[in-house]
């Protein structure tokens, strides 16, 4: 499918989606509550077949928190990128896509660890890289490390 066809398909699947072009791919911003449904359709429909999630990134858009899903079809060789954002910083929640792409399991744990977004229906929602007792989520823009070495020396 060409980029224009992909945009039309996204508009059919979700009326509130906003599509923009970037240098590399079509970027579709999907409302958080319909992300899973759209992703499932994109994976299952025979003319889209997005079976490969090559990257999953958490971004602090300040004030919103978001996750960027880079998708590719290994059979049809087209690409699309989805973004879902949530405005709730205290209790940020998004739907997990583990069911659709197994690679998401560890990557969503990383997003939870570094940005503090909890994923609904994730089988094992724990920190991935940092210690279980770590306070805060370092990749948030408002993060300040309470235990800076400078403070410890004082």
């Amino acid at each position: 499918m060409t980029n224009e066809e992909l945009k039309q398909r996204i508009a059919q699947l979700c009326a509130d989606a906003v599509c923009t072009d970037t240098q590399d791919y079509v970027l579709a911003e999907i409302p958080a509550n319909s992300l899973f449904a759209v992703a499932k359709q994109l994976q299952e429909q025979p003319d889209t077949q997005f079976d490969y999630l090559y990257s999953l990134t958490g971004v602090d858009y300040n004030p919103e928190l978001g996750v960027v899903y880079h998708l590719e079809s290994t059979t049809l060789h087209h690409k699309i990128t989805l973004v879902a954002k949530t405005a709730d910083r205290e209790n940020a929640r998004l739907d997990s896509v583990c069911e659709l792409w197994k690679t998401a399991e560890l990557q969503e744990r990383e997003v939870y660890d570094l940005l503090g977004i909890t994923f609904n229906n994730h089988p094992d929602m724990r920190r991935l890289l940092l210690d279980e007792e770590w306070h805060g989520h370092p990749l948030r823009k408002d993060y300040s490390n309470p235990q800076l070495i400078v403070d410890l020396i004082k």
């Binding site: 090559y54 990257s55 990134t57 880079h70 197994k102 690679t103 560890l106 990557q107 990749l139």
Partner: peptide, 13 residues
């Protein structure tokens, strides 16, 4: 924001 897509993390999963 910069993110490195790590081939090893995916292979480990």
């Amino acid at each position: 924001r910069i993110k490195f897509r790590s081939p090893n993390l995916a292979n480990l999963s």
